[in-house]
Design a protein around this nucleic acid. Sequence first.
DNA 1: GTCGCTTCCTTTTTT
DNA 2: AGGAAGCGAC
Length: 703
Amino acid sequence: MPELPEYLQDLNPEQLAAVRHEGGNLLILAGAGSGKTRVITTKIAWLVRERGVAPESVLAVTFTNKAAREMRDRASAIDPECARAYLRTFHSFGAWFLRRNAAAAGLDPNFTIYDDDDSTTLLHGTAPDLTRAECGRLASRIARAKDYGLAPDAPDLEARFPDRNFRRLYAGYEKRLRETGNVDFGDLILLPARVLRDDEAIRNRFHQRFRVILVDEYQDSNVAQFELLKVLAGGGAYVCVVGDDDQSIYRFRGAEVRNILEFPEVFPGTEIVRLERNYRSFQSILDVAGAVVARNEGRLGKTLKAVKAGGPKAKLALLADQDEEAAYASRVAEARASRTGRWSDTAVLYRTNAQSLAFEHLFNKRGIPYRIVGSVRFYEREEVKDALAYLAVLSNPRDEVNFRRVVNKPSRGVGDTSVQAILEAAYASDGDLLSASRGAGPLLKTAKSRSGLSAFVSLVDGLRGLLDAPGEGRPLSGLVERTVKDSGLAEYHRDQDEIAGTQRAANLDELVNAAADFELSPAGLAEFLETIELDRRLSDQEESLEAVTLITMHNTKGLEFPVVVVTGLEQGLFPRDDDEGEDLEEQRRLFYVAATRAKEELHLCSCRSRLLRGRRADFLPSRFIHEIPPGLYETLGGRLPAPAPEGPWKPGLPVYHDDHGSGYVIQVKAGPPDSGPLVFVKFETGRVLQFFPKFTRKLEALK
DNA sequence: GTCGCTTCCTTTTTT
DNA sequence: AGGAAGCGAC
């Protein structure tokens, strides 16, 4: 038997089989920490080196930019040729496709990408009688519809979105969005799939271009992405997907585990390889994670076995409130850092971004360096979005959302009435808001609005001139700087900073710096805006920072840390009280993901009370804690309170309340002494209220 | 049209 | 707690 090339020698038999598989299609079921990234990157290298596959014909799709970068780095470390393979997120692949085929998709080639907030604004423009909050909820349902591949004219739209008006509002939004020439996130998947289906020439070109398609984190792909994959692979490409049904945590965003289950049917000749050896965690950690996820009914089921047997038991810390929780986390991080000298060994995980606050406060106080992943993003700050909005209008003058945002910011006396008149004029012609603004003088009622608008027009024209001036190799930062200055944003925020003690002007400077790597040209500008929209990190340095990581559980996908502190394990927070069925199972998977990030130490924290939206609320430990066999962890800080007290009041019990109507009990807690149990009821109205049955006659148990 | 005050309502989770 | 909508005064 010939000796294996060096880069294949350390693979276990299953990994090797996955790497060397060819012919039909391949589904890799890869448990947490089983080396799936290694398998994918090695497979790319193997195809290029051993099978003569051109790297350009390999497309590898991931879900996050971080994962895409890591994959590129690791593949090119094996073979530099691999750097020419096409590694991207689904969304950036879609954007790349649409820039090159803008006309076929009915878009402006310099389109910008609307985020959720922009979509809400656009929708608000088409449905002014709804509140902004309602538009926000509606916008997220439209986004969901797109995740499912449902256009406004889809026959089965009502099946999933029964709301009477939904189709009409969705159609109105879509029409307006097409008029702007821009796209939202969902379009980055939907439109490429549509173009490929409808245009034979483009389809053939892409079928010839990509002969191998790899998809990472396949369990979190949605229906639209599955459709895109199918049409991309339709020319006989080799398809290999990697996923873990136990780590599917984006169902709320339209992810479909069925994509895994049905893969072998849709892609005939599929072989399945299972990777069940875990190289990351001690067995003691896998036992805890596995105990919770094992309660789920809808799973393929697999047994993950740790290469590192044994290991210290997980610690369960029962704490008074979020301040004690932060103190506990800081002790864990300090103990670790004093042993290894590395703050970066420790990560603190939480369910919602708002929970980071207590940790930030205390870490600041104790001088513990930390970095927050996600949360309040730089590019979502108001001043930064304003500056970007000017640039977006330069890039695409039909961009209604960003035009609205900046035409009167800082205020120039151009109010709602004037904006409405300009929009109507624009939509009556070609939709170009800048040319509509130039001719809008007679439409405006006051002298102030006329002079304000003309100031805006000459501002934008000046910037446009800079953008269109010929000249190679100048950096885009010059344009961004001029934009920030000439618009008056810089001055406005400098003044505000003095009053409020903020540092918004500095953020604007930062934005100017970020543009230094891009070229001053319309294409360079579009690229800059796209990079920001799809990859919202400020810089690379934050990843290598020597600091404790504060991060949501969702954001930890694909990461690992020697020490992991999972916080907020309280019933009502994680899982939420209204989680049941599939929602509850998704939360168990989220717990599984969180716990399996830990290599050496796993800490679980549960607070008895916590500040929530400005109010103090009492909690019992999460049901997930009760789902772990007590022998698998060590309890610190007191006794585990018993689960909800027994009695006539039990979760699930139907009830009737004189004032609130019918509902059912979702939770029962021990109340203060002599007050009897505290009962949480969810009513048909959707409200959740709590009662002491001992003190009220209005609440009645049915049946 | 703008500014500032009051009230109400909220949020999981993210490309 | 903090932000957004709604309202009244300039």
